[in-house]
Amino acid sequence: MLLEVKNLDAGYGYLQILRSVSLNIDKGEYVCIIGPNGAGKSTTMKSIIGLIAPMGGTVVFNGEDITGMSASQITTKGISFVSEEMNLFVNMSVQENLYMGAYTIKDKKIQKNRLDFVFSLFPRLAERKAQLAGTMSGGERKMLAIGRGMMSDPKLLLVDEPSFGLAPQLVANVFESLDVLKSQGVTILLVEQNVTKTLAVTDRGYILENGKIGLKGKSRDLADNPHVRKVFLGV
């Protein structure tokens, strides 16, 4: 098991959002968390990566307990986080942003290989490598954020709402690029609002409601589940 989250409690200040959330991901899986707004999807992601200190429970990654470590330590262990806000370095060029993604890799040669890999994944970024990240369009920024997440050669990629604020055509592009990553053997945990599309491409899913895991199972089965169909798909 690559990632095992057990009875995770988390929140902001005195406000507890997650209540005893448990989930696990095997190597090579493509797993999604779906749920309504405010259910705690992003909070789950942020407490796995260490941007929020969990109030209780454990997070075990690759056999090592990473609960309560700082985000920079957890990144070094091999988890990459592509946040909803992307958190790009707006005054740096595309290439500099990507190199910062490989900050934990000290070997220049490996850095270069990773850069070539990301450029082959997103040829658009190669065309614009000298452009400042802040001057790019929304779709390109999303590609850059995912590319930067891939630069550190992560064992697990956490992607938070990649389709947020994108035009439908670009959403399709983002999903395609995640498919390519999956076929390369990258383990992905995806948080999404776009339920139909997400359940169509992922292997397994967790439904998060009011800070608790409501349902879990194969994505295909979830898509047929009457509760899911009623609440999320409006059928």
């Binding site: 985000a71 920079s72 990144t75 986080f81 370095f89 934990t104």
Partner: peptide, 24 residues
Amino acid sequence: TRTGMAIRAVSQDITGAQIVGIDI
């Protein structure tokens, strides 16, 4: 330099700097 770029990265987006593994 790598460290100089990390300083600039922290100034531009502190969360972004944390998630690429920079020790703030």
